[in-house]
Amino acid sequence: MTDLEKTDSIDSPDFEFPAEPGTVGERLVNLGVSRRGFLKFCTALTSTMALEASMAPKLAYALTTSRPCIIYMSFQECTGCLESLVNSYGTTIENLILTSFSLDYQETLQAAAGTAAEAARNEAMTKNAGKYILVVDGSIPANAKSGYFVSAGESGVDRLNKAAANAAFVVAVGSCAAFGGLPGASPNPTGAVPVSSIIKNKTVVNVSGCPPIAEVITGVLAYYLTNNALPALDANKRPTMYYGKTVHSSCYREENERAGHVANFGDAAARAGGCLRPLGCKGPRTHAACATMRWNQGLSFPIQSGHGCIGCTEPGFWDFGGLYTKTSGGD
């Protein structure tokens, strides 16, 4: 039986989740969670991450049979991306990232420190050579001898190259890792560059944003887990499933603009849903899923809360000019 046939039969009454040792499946069995409960969990999870409903049984199968290794490394960053990932969602995201995947190295979350942590990372990379996923946040000083960003006696460039050498692929989380971000903004004192400027022989997926939506980060990982392949990427190496449309084109205020309702600072039109473009909203030229997936479990997004988009998912957004400077172009 092929894997596809196995996943197709997952909704058969006779199907038994394999519950391989170390997987979520085994954990669920031990906790006495029913298969129905697990299917409900997977359905909600795929929907939350904007993955097609047909992927739910595949995700259920993948979660019960495998536990990919993740090495998560931070460079010149503020830890906002990791905060977004672990704090913004109650249960499912933590479940996915911390139980579905084996997070073998993350300096902020792990208990180990110093040489013990470095040894654990090296061991995980050796054991999972060619298979582990390298997640990176923060940008990296291009010059290894610059003196900026040295960790465990190694330059950022050396650490990144070493970690990426045997990775299956690299996920650059956040706009710093994807495009240079704040460290790379003019005058860029550290000579910071994005991950893709250093890693040339490996697929780099940019999950940009300052920070990115948590469900977008995990959605990319879940897509890989269920399909054993990466989603389609745009010209900026971002998954089109999340970055294919501009914020403006999906925004509920867009049609108000067409009807001539635009906002000014603090006026009634701003509160009544008038388009925020005159206030410098960068939505028309910013590709992101904020208007569709929203933040805080789908509760809202900046424009819904009354503030224009600042364009944080686009290359070089810190150098766009003022946040409240009206932009031209876009859709």
Binding site: F15, S34, R36
Partner: peptide, 10 residues
């Protein structure tokens, strides 16, 4: 709906 169906292992 699939969710209503009791699963054999359960």
């Amino acid at each position: 709906p699939n969710l209503l169906k009791a699963q054999a292992p359960d």
